[in-house]
Structures are given as C-alpha cells and as structure tokens.
Amino acid sequence: MADPNKVDPIHQFGLTNIFTFGDGGLGFTNSALFMVLTVVLIVTFLLGSTTGRSMVPGRAQVVAETLYDFVANMVRGAAGAEGMKFFPFVFSLFMFVLMANMFGMIPFFFTTTSHIIVPAALAILVFLVVVGYGLYRNGFKFFKLFVPAGVPGYVLPIVVPIEIVSFMSRPISLSVRLFANILAGHITLKVFAGFVYSLGSLGILGFLGASLPLIMTVAITALEFLVAALQAYVFAVLTSMYINDAIHPSH
C-alpha cells in the first residue's frame, strides 16, 4: 500500500476516520459518510422530484413514480395487498441498497454494502421483522411454515428440520449474496484495472497486451452496474417473499 506503483485491490475497502465525536468516541468514517450520502440523495431526490405534485410529471417525477410503482408491484405481487403495510420498509431497503451499490460504481467512492456488517444487519432486520410479525399475526400457526401441507407424516421428521435450517439460513444467504457480489465485483474490477496499469508500464508489447484487460475492465464495469441494480432487486424481492411467509405461513 505504501508503494504507489503497486495495485492494491483491498485498499478501496479500507475505512478512514473523517472526524470523531468526542475523545475516542464514535468515529465518522467514509462508510458512515456514504450511508449518510445515500440517505440524503434518496430523500432529496424523492422529495425534490415530487414537490410540484404535477399531474403531468416531469422526468425526475417519472423516475420517482416508476421506482414507487416498481417496488409497490413487487410487494403486492409477492405478499398480496396485506403485504403493502411493509411497502415503506421494502422500499427503503431497496433504495438504500440500490443507491449504496450505485455510489460504489463511482470511482473513489466507498461502497457501504461491501462490508459484511451492513448487508448482514439489514438481513437480520428483515429476519426479525418476518419472525416478529409472523408470530404477532399468526401466533403459533406461524410454525406451520416449517410443516409443508400435504407431506405424509413419516417424512415430516426429515422435512421439518430441513425447513427450519433453510429458514434460519435466510439472513445469511440474503446478506452474503449481496455482500459477496459487490465485494467480488469491486475486487475483480480493481484487479483487471491493475493489469492494465502493470502491463502498460512494460513497454510497447505490454502496452498492446494491456488492451485486453482494458476491454475486460469496461465489460466488467457494465456488468457491475447490472449486478448493483440486480442485487438491490433480489434483496427487495426476497424480503417481499419472506414477508409473504410471515403473513401466510401455510404453504
């Protein structure tokens, strides 16, 4: 890291303190900065684009309404009309993950979702909401979730543990899917971009050879934009489906 000529793909994930509250207190890191920026951008955009409340929307308002409709249809499709009470929750999750991922695509910007703790906290929040609401709404009937209907009794001792394990692993799969995609993508991007730099400094032949990783870098950048949006979508869709389980526990 000390050598400026060496490419370090890990460097981008490093946390740096911008300032600290009090003496040795809570530090405001670049991660915190980008969480704040994410929220500020989402809130300013959604509120700013809709201040006109235009009957015939402008471009920004169309984007805001499209996002609204997109997530609303997702939640309604997965969890039904009753699931719409969780619509603000799913919408917040979707926008937060989407914007954090998209911020990560801008060079020198920090990607908050690349640290396991952020997706993990969000996934655990989803898990707690699902379990909490499922128990609150259905009581003990919520545990029907682990007993699929129409399965013969002698298979249940095998099926029920599998169901429980798959249910318990949901927050892990939900968080690791997002985190691993973003982390791996950013590292791959950095490594390929590093190849361009190292090959380019090896003379004329290396300069020509560097075009290959350059093409790859461009292609992976495009792919990463897709992944950034797709992972936010997957996170929101899975959340909607888990909420559906909380509302309708019997399969």
């Binding site: 915190a32 929220v39 809130v43 959604l46």
Partner: peptide, 16 residues
C-alpha cells in the same frame, strides 16, 4: 458501522 447504519436507515425509513 452498525450505529451509523441504524441512524441512517431509521431516518430513511421515516422519510420514506
């Protein structure tokens, strides 16, 4: 990170 995430996400949720 958890503290900042909680803070920002709660603000985001209520703003939304």
């Amino acid at each position: 990170q958890l503290i900042w995430l909680t803070l920002t996400f709660v603000i985001l949720y209520f703003a939304m």
